[in-house]
Design a protein around this nucleic acid. Structure first.
Length: 229
DNA sequence: GCGACAG
DNA sequence: ATCTTGTCGC
């Protein structure tokens, strides 16, 4: 199934070694100097292998927008479960590098990954900044369903190891999966997720980045000759 | 062998 | 991820 999708020359064993190296450098404790700004990172697809990456910076207290970056990116790697970073990290870095923030929220998993090296970990280790992931569905691990109340959560475990939390950001909505990316604790990641979540199931930083990226992807697909800037 | 599988 | 309107329910 998967092998036919792999372009020849891509050695997953080599990529797994890279993931292991990233995982070794992940810090699961808080290293935040302050918490005044939060960034959200996301990528939306236009057509073929063209996509748009977006990073939006919000004021932590008010959630007012402070800054935003958008970049057109070419995806050179296919989507293969557990190897998402090799498809999306490059584009995500282009926008995140230019947007300063105290913490970055990524629409993907952090250490809630078979080798503890989700996209949020790659971004956090490369930038050497606090990051964490908020995903809409599970990649690995086991957890009970949290009670149907905003703010309730259960721990996502892989054997005896805690790799994340299944968090209810809104009542009557499927919970989200929160996990450490780098330089932050799960406890703080959960706190930030709840603080930045308002009318949507996903936290505002990710929601805003997604809308911005999707808007550009749509405009680009309607008129390829439009520079968009 | 079978099921699971971020975006 | 993306293609897509209405519809059921609180």
């Amino acid at each position: 199934m998967l092998p036919i999708l792999h372009p020849p020359g891509i050695d997953l064993n080599k990529l797994m070694q890279i993931q292991n190296r990233i995982a070794k450098n992940v810090k699961r404790e808080d290293h935040l100097k302050k918490l005044e700004t939060v960034a959200g990172c996301d990528i939306s697809f236009a057509k073929h292998n063209i996509a748009w990456a977006a990073c939006v910076v919000l004021d932590y207290r008010t959630l007012d927008p402070l800054d935003q970056k958008v970049e057109k990116v070419r995806l050179r790697f296919p989507y293969i479960p557990t190897f998402l970073a090799f498809r999306e990290l490059e584009g995500m870095l282009k926008t995140a590098r230019g947007a300063e923030a105290d913490v970055y929220v990524v629409g993907a998993h952090g250490i809630a990954h078979p080798r503890r090296a989700g996209l949020a970990c790659h971004l956090g280790v490369i930038l050497d900044r606090p990051t964490f992931g908020v995903a809409k569905s599970k990649l690995c691990g086991d957890a009970n369903m949290p009670p149907n109340r905003r703010g309730s959560y259960t721990l996502l475990k892989d054997g005896s190891e805690t790799i994340g939390a299944v968090l209810r950001t809104l009542p009557n909505a499927k919970p989200v999966y929160v996990s450490v990316g780098n330089k932050i604790s799960l406890k703080t990641a959960i706190k930030i997720t709840l603080h930045t979540t308002r009318k949507h199931r996903l936290p505002e930083p990710i929601q805003a980045a997604h809308e911005l990226a999707t808007h550009h992807a749509k405009v680009a697909s309607l008129d390829p000759s439009t520079p968009c800037f």
